[in-house]
């Protein structure tokens, strides 16, 4: 499990660099480091489905992010907001952190799944009866496409809306320029 902690620290350091660096391209590459480190962590947490999805989504997302930043002439950014506002924001974020960290005392220790602490949870049913009630060997596929298929239908709707929104935002006023080659 030591590798898991090392990966978690690696991800946090990559996040700090991604937030604090002045170069936008470096920040985007650090986002890639977070994503691939996160994919390895999902593999350690016994979630191979999530690991595969995360790694391919990360590649696509990196291409989109680099596409948005690389051709802009302004890859170096100037300083942050004024000093007073930054200090106040940092203090507020730190106070939220200190207040919120006590929530995790109510959870069981890491390595003890929450669904084992409560009798008759849905997850236990999925593990015990998923194979015979749906016939799918991959229990995650059984959950997303049979037991909770409404969730997937909603996901398809959200994805459809997001894509249509992106295309509408990107659509320009002039359609004559489409014939203009490059």
């Amino acid at each position: 499990m030591a590798v898991f902690y090392i990966l978690l620290l690696f991800v946090i350091i990559a996040a700090i660099i991604a937030v604090e660096t002045k170069n936008l391209l470096s920040a985007v590459i650090c986002v890639g480091a977070i994503g691939f480190g996160g994919s390895l962590m999902f593999l350690f947490l016994r979630a191979p489905d999530i690991a595969i999805t995360q790694i391919v989504v990360e590649v696509m997302g990196l291409i989109i992010l680099i596409r948005a930043t690389i051709s802009r002439d302004l890859t170096f950014i100037s300083g942050d907001r004024e000093f007073f506002g930054t200090v106040v924001s940092v203090v507020i974020v730190f106070v939220i952190f200190l207040a919120g960290i006590h929530v995790f005392d109510t959870l069981p220790d890491f390595g003890t799944a929450v669904f084992t602490q409560v009798p008759d949870t849905a997850s236990q049913t999925y593990i015990e009866e998923g194979l015979e009630r749906t016939g799918a060997a991959n229990l995650v596929a059984a959950v997303i496409l049979d037991f909770r298929a409404y969730d997937t239908l909603g996901e398809a709707t959200v994805l459809f809306t997001a894509i249509i929104g992106a295309m509408v935002i990107l659509r320009g006023k002039s359609r004559k320029l489409l014939e203009d080659p490059d």
Partner: peptide
Amino acid sequence: GHLTPGGGFAGGV
């Protein structure tokens, strides 16, 4: 997707 890790989401990407 119903036998091994993966499925429609990962395969589609």
